[in-house]
Amino acid sequence: MTERIQGVVVAALEEINLTREEKIPTDQVLDLCLYGDSGVFESMYLVAFLSLVEENIEDEFGTEVSLTSEKAVSRRVSPFSSVRRLIGFIEEELELVGVRG
């Protein structure tokens, strides 16, 4: 399942890259920091990116997960600090609603 989620996240990054002049590198994608001091997104773009990932997850797995829930934003280690953590968070959320890889 991890790879499928990674595919969804990378697809979202690539879609965002189409409209960006400064491209987000997707080679070392798991360690890519999304938001924070060395993050690739400014705040409002982060929200747009997360919505896009939510849509793609819904299309891929047929179920909705929220990436901007109180649960997501109140984690001591933010799920937006790296793509790896975001994938981990999505995986947990999908398992909670019974979706298994």
Binding site: Y35, G36, D37, G39, S43, V73, S78, F80, S81
Partner: peptide, 12 residues
């Protein structure tokens, strides 16, 4: 306030 905390900017 949320954006500051989620991005850990209060620590940096």
């Amino acid at each position: 306030l949320n954006l500051i905390m989620v991005g850990d900017y209060h620590r940096t």
